[in-house]
Design a binder for these strands. Structure first.
Length: 139
DNA sequence: AAGGCTGTCAACCGCACGTCT
DNA sequence: AAGACGTGCGGTTGACAGCCT
């Protein structure tokens, strides 16, 4: 039986406060990214290491490009998804300043919907042969 | 104006994988 | 070789804002 990654008792959960963000930024600025497990204690944060890592990678890193995806980025995501599937970290690696979480969210909320409305199966990127109406016909 | 619905996004959870002992 | 440990990844959830009726 594997131990949990962190002590569930006594660690904060949910949205990060400005103070917590600042502590994490300050710590990483001085010591760099390193051992996530020991980082929270060293930085004075009541969070688990995973939570710190996620917060840093997805939100606090200075090279993150925030805001809407451009048409070129969207096209690239679609192409890469067709090639790689749900390998979000690989896809994000090809998009400078974008994170896997951001790409995954954008795919699920925008692109997937768009492809479905165009009659394209977002899983295999092929045109659906059977019109959706056929599924609602009993027998 | 208010209550319900829907979409978006930050964050958590559990598993997989690589490394170390 | 095998188990323990730390980290990374993908799926999923929950909060919240904006839209609709």
């Amino acid at each position: 039986m594997r131990k949990p990654c962190c002590d569930k008792e006594g660690t904060n959960k949910g949205a990060w406060s400005k103070q917590e963000d600042q502590k994490l930024i300050d710590y990483i600025r001085i010591h760099g990214e390193g051992c996530w497990r020991s980082l929270p204690k060293a930085a004075g944060l009541d969070r688990c290491g995973k939570s710190c890592r996620l917060r840093w990678i997805n939100y606090l890193r200075p090279d993150i490009k925030r805001g809407n995806f451009g048409q070129d980025e969207e096209d690239l995501i679609i192409k890469l998804h067709a090639l790689l599937g749900n390998r979000w970290s690989l896809i994000a690696g090809r998009l400078p300043g974008r994170t896997d979480n951001e790409v995954k969210n954008y795919w699920n909320s925008h692109i997937r919907r768009k492809l479905i409305s165009m009659g394209i199966d977002p899983n295999n990127h092929r045109l659906n042969q059977i019109p959706p109406i056929a599924f609602s016909q009993p027998n």
